[in-house]
Design a protein around this nucleic acid. Structure first.
Lengths: 204, 204
DNA sequence: TATATTATTGACATCATGTCATTTTCCTTG
DNA sequence: CAAGGAAAATGACATGATGTCAATAATATA
């Protein structure tokens, strides 16, 4: 199990090479976007040989997946916050916090999220990982809505899964708009409006 | 203005070649997806020479843009339906119809929409055209909400633009799920739930 | 020091792209 | 209707990216 702790100079060099490449790849992805980015640019920036890239990774896509894992973990952390509201106010507060935390990611990780968005459209594997994150959120919120329905806080006639998806989808689309710098309302205002509509409805 | 009506045999042949290529390209895009698709596959299927493809189009992306124009026009038609509701019921009915028509597109044009989705992630031009469609919808709905607010039908404290975006975004995300065959509720149920939440709210 | 193991390397084969000089097809004019 | 010209089609080619692999360098071990 802990056999891997035997790290010799060779192994160390290997790790450093890998990290140099990852660092360079990040820059290239940010500068060029996913498809214009080439392995050649990365290895030049990292000062390593061409073949070396293929020793450490399977290709461009694989490199990006590794770079993305960091960011994706943060989403999981947000999604994993567990809650079972007892009052309507509690429910609203929590739903608002969740939306805000989610949208904030767009701002703090904007650069990598821009590359991420392209990659989702191109790589099935990356797309699947994003889908998993989405389902995690929807599952959480769906459970919360079901609980709220059982306790007379939410309208019982609404399909929880659909409602949860809708809520998440709205947040997600705003996330991408913020990532693309296409949106100039603050994260707080967006989160407030989404929550207000979902909890109070648009029409009187 | 009508000079172009002079169509000789050469011109006719040119048009036919172009159409043969578009037809073949459509098949290849559907079979292979946007990036695996190659010009070579298309020209073989169309029985024309390699260079010919570049006489008619600037490349893969350009071919897809032309193929997409058809589909996109249909979205514009839906978006252009104008309405100013007088009663709350009228507002709900119209918003439901709009959502249903929009989502139905995912079903009737599923194949091309699948290619479309990839293309949006890859081609800036296609992405921009889709954004224009989105803004058209949001503009329409935003106006409707503003009107409803002025006439005491909708909550006046909500930001119309944000509400309209949210509504559209939810629909759009469902659209893509349906396109990807990832969704098994009926279009009607989805449209109903979205409308119900937006108009009546999730919590009591 | 000699040998084994691990990591690195760049040259190479492959494949898609876009260009362009050439060829084919059709029209026009004397 | 024959000759020359214009429009359309063509495929060979140059370019650039990818992934592989046999050779080489660096380090460990006996």
């Amino acid at each position: 199990m802990t056999d891997e702790k035997v790290i010799d100079k060779r192994h160390l060099r290997s790790i450093k090479t890998r990290e140099k490449l990852l660092e360079a790849a990040k820059e290239v992805f940010l500068e060029e976007g996913f498809h214009k980015a080439t392995i050649s640019q990365m290895i030049k920036k990292a000062n390593i040989g061409y073949g070396t890239a293929y020793v450490h990774f399977e290709g461009k896509e694989d490199i990006l997946i590794v770079l993305m894992e960091n960011v994706m973990e943060k989403f999981y952390e947000i999604a994993e916050v567990s809650f079972l509201p007892k009052t309507k106010n509690e429910a609203l507060e929590i739903i608002l916090k969740q939306a805000t935390a989610f949208l904030k990611m767009a701002e703090t990780e904007r650069n990598m999220m821009q590359v991420f968005e392209q990659a989702i459209g191109i790589s099935t594997e990356i797309s699947n990982k994003w889908k998993a994150i989405r389902e995690k959120f929807i599952q959480r919120i769906s459970e919360d809505i079901a609980y709220a329905q059982e306790n007379g806080l939410a309208r019982p006639e609404l399909n929880q899964k659909l409602a949860a998806r809708g809520w998440f989808f709205t947040n997600e689309m705003y996330l991408w708009e913020i990532v693309r710098n296409e949106h100039h309302d603050t994260v707080e205002e967006v989160a407030n409006t989404i929550t207000a509509i979902y909890t109070r409805g648009l029409y009187l």
